[in-house]
Design a protein around this nucleic acid. Sequence first.
DNA 1: TCTGGGGTCCTAGGACCC
DNA 2: TCTGGGGTCCTAGGACCC
Length: 421
Amino acid sequence: MFALADCNNFFVSCERVFQPELEGRPVVVLSNNDGCVVARSNESKAMDIAMGTPFFKMKGLFESGKVAARSSNYTLYGDMSRRVMNILRETIPDMEVYSIDEAFLNLEGIPEEQWVPLCRGLVKRVRQWVGIPISIGIAPAKTLCKVAGHFAKRYPAYRGVCVIDTAEKREKALRLTPVGEVWGIGWRGAPKLSGLGVKTAWDFVQKPESWVHKHMSITGVRTWKELQGIPCIVDETEERRQSICTSRSFADLITDRDELSLRISDFAGICAAKLRKDGSAASEVGLFMHTNRFRPDLPQYYPFVRTRLDTASDTTREIVGAALSLLDMAWKEGYGYKRAGVLVSGIVPCDEVQGALFDSLTPEERHRDRLISQIMDRVNSGGRNLLRVATQRPGHYADGIRREHCSKMYSTDWNELLVAR
DNA sequence: TCTGGGGTCCTAGGACCC
DNA sequence: TCTGGGGTCCTAGGACCC
């Protein structure tokens, strides 16, 4: 059996911990550049504010005070997430952190009669100690945990914990679940299934496996089995990532090559630091840039170029160098760039890097670059950007991103905490 | 004026091998 | 006129997740 612990309206809940005046009000949290809605409180969901709504389309609601808005503050959310996960881990160490606000707990070895009291205790402790409301769904497969979690969240009578552990409960839950709400069936799958007469999750599991395979391929079959309580989705969080991407939209269109080059150096530098944090090295570096797709009146251009490194690398100098040489390939004058990103792939463990016979760098040079990167990591620990290569921008990584409604770093900056108190 | 960011997996089709 | 059969690897694009 698994338990899925899921934070309710996570980003909004984080904001509310330090701004209790937001409690009970419609609240939304915005994406980078205050672009669109990425989190909603129950009150704003009730107002039919959809996920992904562009902020400018609901400016009226905001300015009239009907809805409160906050820029996203990932430093705060990351820190709150860490606190929640620590509490869960203390009780159930066999845990898989699935996303910033979700974790699967393995209940194997825990007596059945303890599942619910144990999880109720977790709900209470997380709320008391961190201030974040969570819900827990318990079931024999992860997709069913998601279903159970929905009920735990929606109906207060469950007091935060819902269990699907019998055929009767499973049938009842699946009959009440529209097929489009099932984990793994997306917004394209739902209308297609509906057209084939499948409206609920229960309709879906009634179909034979061959039918599911024909219409939804192997991934659909996995979901179908999971809904019957046969676990098919394995823990992949311990595995090495296969690619790392750092990309941003810009507050304004960038038309100047030097300006874009500074941003791309930053993105590449972040990718290199992420590689080192994972103990990985990459053998390929890619670069993409996008003009503004919402401005059809402007010329459009969205190149993606990539290059292979002689030897897989994790050094800032080399990843940044590769990204800048890609900019030479992709750059075209006369366009306004709205977004760009660097992607590293071909990832291997950094202590298993295959040497190259005709390497552009000597082993001594590689060693020196790695030492320099390590020093940068030490100086820059905690997400600061103090030591950088000369092609990167001075200042903070978040500079140049519009965040007009940002809360303070309540939990990570001592001075701000004192002011808040 | 203003529309996010970071991932994974699967499939189809092309290039290439013997 | 008639033009095999079986494989691998890579890539682009689509679908999905949070």
